[in-house]
Simulated scan of single mutants.
Amino acid sequence: MQQREHIISISSRFCGPPNSGNGGYVSGLLAKAMGVPCQITLHAPPPLDTPLQLLASDEGAELRLGEQLLGSAKPHVFKLNLPSAVDAATAAQAQERFEGFEQHNLPCCFVCGTNREPLDGLRIFAGPTELRDEQVAALWTPDDTLTDESGMVSSEYLWAALDCPGYFAVRGQAGIALLGRFSAHIEQPVRAGEPLVVAGWALGHDGRKHFAGTALYNQQGEAVAWAEATWISLQKAAAA
């Protein structure tokens, strides 16, 4: 088994909490290093603007700060039953009801932070739809700051976009929660400037664990990427 080692640093632009990386973005970096479908487990918050060791092989990947394990990846193929696409008009109405406008635990978050400006954060404000319970949706058009050398949106940003909407789908039962595990599948590349609908929905709840699905849909209603996440409730953990 040949292991590849890289030194990476997570820029403060890509924070989730103020002092650590957004979980979806960090998961996307691990997945890109592996290069195969995988499941990411986040073990500890990765610090910002700090040299980190990214070790990857075909059998797995690890993100470390010295001896501390921050994240790990293992090959994983999942099947997710996708709901019907949310149309753009419904998503536009839903995002007006984004709960983060009233109260946001992480207004600096790269993905869903209300304090982030255009061309800085993704500004995905997924609010509840009226189509089904525990479903949220929003509009998102990725910009040119998110592309790779081919002009396509880099995969780690698609992973990021699939992150926070899942939380807001389960927030009613989860309360304050952090991403624990994350798997994503990118079906087709996305161009900068391509209008998308982001949807998230609850898959179930089990004590402190809350399961969510998310998807990105193009203008034709086709799913271009989807993900499955496990969120860990912190408030209930403290109460226990």
Rank of each mutant, 00 (worst) to 15 (best):
Q3R: 15
E5T: 10
I10H: 00
S11Q: 05
G16I: 00
P17D: 10
S20I: 04
G23E: 00
G24M: 04
V26M: 07
S27Y: 01
S27N: 07
S27E: 04
G28Q: 02
L29S: 06
L29I: 09
A31Y: 02
A33P: 00
G35D: 12
V36M: 14
V36Y: 09
C38N: 03
Q39D: 14
L42H: 00
L42M: 08
P45H: 01
P47Y: 04
P51K: 05
Q53I: 13
Q53K: 15
L55K: 12
A56F: 08
A56H: 03
S57P: 03
E59G: 15
G60K: 02
G60D: 13
L63N: 03
L63T: 02
R64F: 02
R64Y: 07
K74L: 09
P75Y: 06
H76F: 12
H76L: 10
N81Q: 14
P83H: 04
S84R: 11
A85E: 03
D87N: 11
T90E: 14
E96C: 14
E96A: 15
E102F: 15
H104G: 15
L106Q: 06
P107S: 07
P107D: 04
P107K: 10
F110H: 01
V111N: 05
V111Y: 06
V111D: 02
V111H: 04
N115E: 13
R116W: 08
P118V: 05
D120R: 14
D120A: 14
G127S: 10
L131F: 14
Q135E: 10
L139E: 08
T141F: 08
D143T: 05
L146P: 00
T147D: 03
E149F: 11
E149I: 10
G151K: 10
Y157S: 06
A160T: 05
A161Q: 01
D163G: 11
P165Q: 03
P165S: 09
A169T: 01
V170D: 02
G172C: 07
Q173C: 09
L178F: 12
L179N: 00
S183K: 01
A184S: 08
H185R: 14
I186G: 04
P189Q: 09
R191M: 10
R191V: 13
R191N: 14
A192S: 13
G193L: 09
E194H: 10
L196D: 04
G200N: 06
W201Y: 12
W201M: 03
L203A: 07
D206R: 06
H210Q: 08
A212H: 07
A212T: 04
G213D: 03
T214R: 05
Q219L: 13
Q220C: 11
A225C: 11
E228V: 08
E228C: 11
W231Q: 00
L234Y: 09
K236S: 12
A238E: 15
A238G: 12
